[in-house]
Design a protein around this nucleic acid. Structure first.
Length: 268
DNA sequence: TCTGACCTGCGA
DNA sequence: TCGCAGGTCAGA
């Protein structure tokens, strides 16, 4: 599921509803998503402490809760659900954060691909590439990143060690917007194309954040609503449908074991 | 660089 | 019933 725009939407909403509120207690199930901490240790370390900050880098979400720093990677189907009405607990809830007034924040992950870590200091992400939604990302940075890479441009965009936050949906959408074929090698992208690619990365991600992310199946916002960005996708999941740009046919191929959607006429 | 594995649910 | 799904990692 969640790529940068979805994780950013979740971060903003958790900030809006839970920042500076104290977690009264936590119920965490002993599932494999806990990496460097057990569910019990996680419960004990966060209970009774305030949520002091909520941050995002790439597809990672991390909070400061008193003197500890939980880190969440949401995998394919991880979401947070705010439960104000004390309604019946949905299925596949692995963590319930219960706040002092009884309001709950659930962490749900149907497919259990998410990963949760706990640190005693602010986490570092040394292997993560540049986050395209922060100030460090620039045209010259993109130029510098592209130059040495032999891999195809779709793999480049999705490689979290190079650029952190782009996944399969937005990689296809970015390349369509930039008019660049997904088969091109990264180092073959030159001059104006780099500028177009840079602008497309920013535009596609910003638009998606503005639309609260893309709901294709599992993803929903903390408020329990679907994102709206799926209404604006140009190629993703539009195989055999007419290209909005040229009227040709959107194609679907399997590339690096992932589906890629593109228009042969518009992307070269 | 590629494939399979990790999981569950959904739609064809 | 089967194939596929927004991610990542290990192993070939």
């Amino acid at each position: 599921m969640p790529e940068l725009p979805e994780v950013e939407t979740i971060a903003r909403q958790i900030r809006r509803y839970f920042l500076n509120r104290t977690i009264k207690h936590i119920e965490a199930k002993p599932v494999k998503i806990f990496q460097n901490v057990t569910a019990l240790e996680f419960q004990q370390a966060l209970s009774g402490k305030p949520v002091q900050s909520v941050n995002r880098i790439g597809k990672y979400l991390w909070w400061q809760v008193g003197d500890v720093f939980p880190v969440f990677h949401l995998g394919m189907s991880g979401i947070f659900i705010r439960d104000k009405k004390q309604s019946r607990q949905p299925k596949h809830i692995h963590i319930s954060f219960i706040f002092q007034d009884g309001e709950k924040l659930y962490f749900q992950d149907v497919r259990k691909f998410s990963k949760i870590y706990l640190y005693g200091e602010a986490p570092q992400f040394p292997d993560l590439g540049v986050d395209p939604a922060n100030g460090e990302f620039s045209l010259s940075k993109l130029q510098e990143l592209l130059r040495p890479q032999k891999m195809n441009i779709k793999s480049f965009l999705m490689n979290q060690n190079i650029i952190a936050g782009i996944g399969n949906i937005y990689a296809s959408e970015i390349l369509f917007n930039a008019g660049i074929s997904p088969f091109r090698s990264s180092r073959s992208i030159k001059g104006d194309e780099i500028e177009k690619l840079f602008q497309s990365i920013q535009k596609i991600l910003e638009d998606a954040i503005r639309n609260y992310g893309t709901t294709y199946s599992a993803y929903q916002t903390v408020e329990g609503q679907s994102g709206r960005n799926q209404e604006f996708l140009k190629v993703y999941q539009r195989a055999d449908k007419p290209c909005y740009n040229c009227g040709g046919t959107v194609e679907k191929i399997v590339q690096n074991s992932r589906s890629t959607f593109f228009c042969k006429k518009c992307q070269s």
